[in-house]
Amino acid sequence: MSKMKNFGAVFFLTFILVACGKETLPKPIPYLKLQYPVPTYQKIESNCAYSFEISNLANIKFNNNCSASIEYPQLRATIYITYRPINNNLDEILKEVEKLTFEHTLKADAINAKPYENLEKRVFGKLYNIEGNVATNIQFRTTDSLNHVLSGALYFYTRPNYDSIVPAVKYMEKDIIHLIETLEWKKQQ
């Protein structure tokens, strides 16, 4: 019996020493690494009072009132552009655009505004990055303060889940900034 107890004790002690030799760690949470192509840009001309550059990955469709939709089929996203001429109502138009942005306050975690100004081209604007599970994570507005207001909103064709679409939002933000930086107003006839 003593040999059996000794064997059991040796086995148990060996098991403990071997088992404790290497610490077991939980596997880290895997994250999907999304890689998007580097865009090239093309200037978009139309009969409207403005022009700008968009990514070669996008398609643009103009409406009769010079509003437009810039579609990104691979990302399942669209930037909706609204054009409004100013008729002594700049403050009214800007308040309306800002109201649409701040309607997201209830669901947004944060709304960050980045101002933009190009005195040479007379382009003044703001880019709004809306964090959280909202319908549109990026909105912008631009104006020349005299004749034109151009605003836009980015929509993805998916249920809002900010954590999942952050890489796509950041990618699209670069394209929207490029659009704003290349925006030019056409001369009034």
Rank of each mutant, 00 (worst) to 15 (best):
L34D: 12
L34C: 09
L34G: 06
Q35P: 03
Q35M: 13
Y36N: 03
Y36H: 07
Y36E: 05
P37F: 02
P37R: 06
P37M: 03
V38P: 02
V38Y: 09
V38D: 14
P39G: 09
T40Q: 14
T40W: 09
T40A: 14
T40K: 14
T40I: 11
T40M: 10
Y41A: 10
Q42W: 08
K43G: 10
I44C: 08
E45S: 15
E45I: 09
E45N: 15
E45Q: 15
S46M: 09
S46Q: 07
S46Y: 05
S46H: 11
N47W: 01
N47S: 07
N47F: 05
C48W: 06
C48F: 10
C48D: 05
A49V: 05
A49R: 06
Y50N: 05
Y50R: 08
Y50P: 01
Y50W: 04
S51V: 08
S51Q: 15
F52S: 01
F52H: 02
F52A: 02
E53V: 10
E53P: 08
S55P: 06
S55R: 07
S55W: 02
S55L: 07
N56H: 15
N56P: 04
L57D: 02
L57S: 09
N59A: 07
N59F: 02
N59K: 08
I60V: 10
K61P: 00
K61D: 06
K61A: 10
F62N: 00
F62L: 03
N63P: 00
N63D: 10
N63M: 07
N63T: 06
N65R: 11
N65S: 07
C66Y: 01
C66P: 02
C66R: 02
S67N: 11
S67A: 12
A68K: 01
A68V: 10
S69K: 14
S69I: 10
S69F: 07
I70C: 05
I70Q: 03
I70L: 13
E71P: 00
E71K: 04
E71C: 00
E71Y: 04
P73K: 06
P73S: 11
P73F: 02
P73W: 05
Q74N: 14
Q74T: 12
Q74D: 15
Q74Y: 13
Q74W: 07
L75N: 01
L75D: 06
R76A: 12
R76Q: 15
A77S: 14
A77D: 03
A77H: 09
A77P: 06
A77K: 08
I79G: 04
Y80D: 11
I81R: 08
I81P: 03
I81Y: 06
